[in-house]
């Protein structure tokens, strides 16, 4: 029979994590359903036509959509553990390492899954994230001393990465960075390549310093649990296959996009440089232990905060990464 499914995302389909719903997820589901006698009638609602960014979770809880992208980055209060990557700057810049670590933690730490299940969401390992964040400034940066007194725009959770560095963290977002850099409201931004390139930020802040704040977990493609549980086995399997295809396509698509973004940034006049290992270490050691503060706050709320922090650090080491600062060991 025919099943009605509405897919929701607050971001528009120019973003890879949305684009791959029609381009990878839906075709894979349709393909997996061939010959089962089930078909799906899809309604797609992206870019705020059903819910804004941060409203997808509510839309799914309300039954307005059955499958959707939930950005854990914008659900800090409902999916706190998923945001561990944003409180541990200077972790691995390798997206594969970070994504694998978080997916494994979803398998091994019950609280990780419980946070989704509590919101009536079925986690299907369709996590996605953002590549290694860097620093873009109007002035060259060789050492953190160069940041003294400079105003740096950063998304909310990344403002903490500037604590005690002498820089002034200004909470902002991508839509205003270009203008704010141009008028001098800010002197630089913490951002990731695939966002910086289309926003043409290199025209205003050409010094790109690869500080390697690390790759980030940002959310997942999930299904409404109570609805999913009611579906016939073939349909459940097809959705799983679809989410698998989505996650795979995301990983390979992201690498290509990041490479393209660096090219575009350099073409627009961007000058890319690496921050020295010693300076990175100095920066990391300058920060207060924001990760441990975060973990303790999660523990106090009855969640496995410390366990998640330890696991995230351990999994990166197990993958052969050298951690410049192990936030869990202080």
């Amino acid at each position: 029979d025919e099943i009605d499914i509405t897919t929701v995302a607050g971001h528009p389909p120019v973003f890879l994590w949305v684009k791959l719903i029609p381009e990878a997820f839906i075709p894979a589901v349709n393909k997996a359903l061939e010959g089962t006698g089930h078909t799906v009638s899809w309604t797609e609602a992206y870019g705020g036509t059903l819910a804004k960014v941060g409203g997808e979770l509510e839309a799914m809880e309300d039954g307005l959509a059955q499958i959707g992208v939930v950005s854990s980055l914008f659900e800090a209060s409902l999916l706190p553990l998923q945001n561990v990557t944003y409180v541990t700057p200077f972790h691995s810049p390798d997206t594969a390492v970070v994504f694998d670590a978080i997916e494994q933690m979803h398998e091994e730490i019950p609280d990780m899954r419980k946070l989704w299940a509590d919101k009536d969401l079925e986690y299907l390992s369709g996590g996605f994230g953002l590549e290694d964040y860097f620093l873009m400034t109007k002035f060259p940066v060789a050492s953190i001393d160069d940041l003294k007194g400079k105003k740096i725009g950063a998304p909310g959770p990344a403002v903490n990465w500037l604590k005690e560095t002498g820089a002034v963290g200004v909470s902002g977002n991508l839509t205003t960075y270009y203008n704010d850099l141009q008028t001098g409201v800010i002197d630089g931004v913490i951002v990731f390549p695939t966002a910086a390139a289309p926003a043409k930020l290199a025209e205003q802040a050409k010094y790109i310093t690869k500080v390697h704040f690390g790759a980030q977990y940002a959310g997942a493609l999930v299904a409404k649990k109570s609805w999913y549980d009611d579906q016939p086995k073939e349909v459940q399997d097809a959705i799983r296959a679809g989410v698998d295809a989505y996650a795979k396509a995301y990983r390979s698509g992201l690498d290509a996009r990041v490479a393209g973004a660096y090219k575009a940034l350099e073409a627009a006049g961007g000058e890319v440089s690496e921050m020295s290992e010693a300076e990175r270490k100095r920066w990391a050691d300058t920060l207060p232990n924001i990760a441990m503060d975060w973990a303790k706050a999660q523990d106090a709320a009855g969640l496995a905060g410390t366990e998640v922090l330890k696991a995230f650090m351990a999994k990166q080491e197990a993958a052969g990464e050298t951690l410049i600062r192990d936030w869990s060991k202080e």
């Binding site: 800090a76 945001n83 924001i290 706050a297």
Partner: peptide, 16 residues
């Protein structure tokens, strides 16, 4: 009941 807030943990939180 679930303590929803707007903002980022450890930086700023505004209850919804």
């Amino acid at each position: 009941e679930r303590g929803e807030f707007e903002g980022a943990a450890g930086y700023f939180a505004l209850p919804v």
